[in-house]
Nucleic acid binder design. Structure first.
Length: 279
DNA sequence: ATTTTCCCCTGCCGGC
DNA sequence: TGCCGGCAGGGGAAAA
């Protein structure tokens, strides 16, 4: 499931091949992808416009256009973006939901098995749209401004489990189920601890663990434990670096205690009962 | 306001 | 072999 490192991997791959390209055609094969907007309306907003940049906020991918509008895409669970160079042949894919064709003949396919992914236009707002994003998303964890103090502010006074709080995009942007489990393990914090109960030392450790695990995720090209692939169809390797997530019963890499699976915030959650005590 | 629950989707997997 | 219930999960809406 694409989280911040997976979306950032896609963003970095698309930037050099899309910037400067003009959109020649847009085909929406599954209207649900752009619902409730009419596909024709999306097409009109895109065709003839050039890509001037690729951005990312949390797990949201932003395609910045010369019109000032932004095409926003969210891959949700099983979304993929596949880029095909000019003259190349896009692989057959029965889950393809849309195809964007550029002026050089290259294409970008949005594929999505479970159809949770979405694409929509963010109207001209000087590309900033600060209010739009700040209403939905907390701080960017890889921004230098994401200090332990910033995380402490996000957690202060909250009684919800720390795992649920990390998954709440309004607290911190971009963390999903995989990286939440991995960061909590590295910080030695039990997923059920009330977020506001973490002491200063734990918050600092958690901040460092979040930043570290996300960076490693990007370095590894993302985690392909489910359907994630990069824009060339290649899997990442972060799944091989996971220490607790989806490792139920396996020995903890630190102490050897079997990893326990539980359910927190409606999500499968993995932790080491020895390294991450409830207190 | 915060927190929890439900729901959308489809593919996969275990059980019978 | 084949059917079927259950599970997986990001995030938005609705409920608590």
């Amino acid at each position: 499931m694409p989280e911040l490192p997976e979306v950032e991997t896609v963003r970095r791959q698309l930037e050099p091949v899309l910037v400067g390209r003009s959109i020649a055609a847009v085909r929406v094969l599954d209207p649900l992808l752009v619902a409730p907007v009419n596909p024709a309306r999306l097409r009109r907003a895109l065709v003839g416009h050039a890509v001037v940049g690729l951005g990312r906020r949390g797990k949201y991918l932003q395609v910045l256009l010369d019109s000032g509008d932004t095409l926003v895409m969210h891959l949700r669970m099983t979304g993929r973006l596949h880029h095909t160079a000019p003259g190349g042949r896009a692989p057959a894919d029965r889950h393809r939901r849309a195809r964007f064709t550029f002026d050089d003949g290259s294409t970008l396919d949005f594929s999505d098995t479970r159809r949770f992914g979405r694409a929509w236009m963010l109207p001209d707002d000087g590309h900033a749209n600060a209010a739009y994003w700040s209403a939905r998303l907390g701080p960017e964890p890889l921004d230098p401004a994401f200090t332990a103090e910033v995380l402490a502010d996000a957690l202060r006074g909250r009684s919800a489990p720390i795992k649920a709080t990390l998954l709440d995009q309004r607290r911190v942007a971009g963390i999903g189920n995989i990286y939440a489990d991995e960061a909590l393990f590295q910080a030695r914090v039990h997923p059920l601890r009330p977020a506001g109960d973490l002491d200063e030392h734990e918050v600092a450790a958690l901040r460092d663990a979040i930043v570290d695990r996300l960076h490693v995720g990007i370095d590894q090209g993302g985690a392909s434990i489910d359907r994630y692939r990069d824009t060339l169809g290649r899997p990442g390797s972060m799944q091989d670096m996971l220490r607790v997530h989806r490792h139920e019963g396996d020995p903890c890499p630190v102490c050897g205690t079997p990893i326990v699976k539980s359910r927190v915030a409606q999500r499968g959650t993995y932790h080491c009962p020895e390294c991450q005590p409830v207190d």
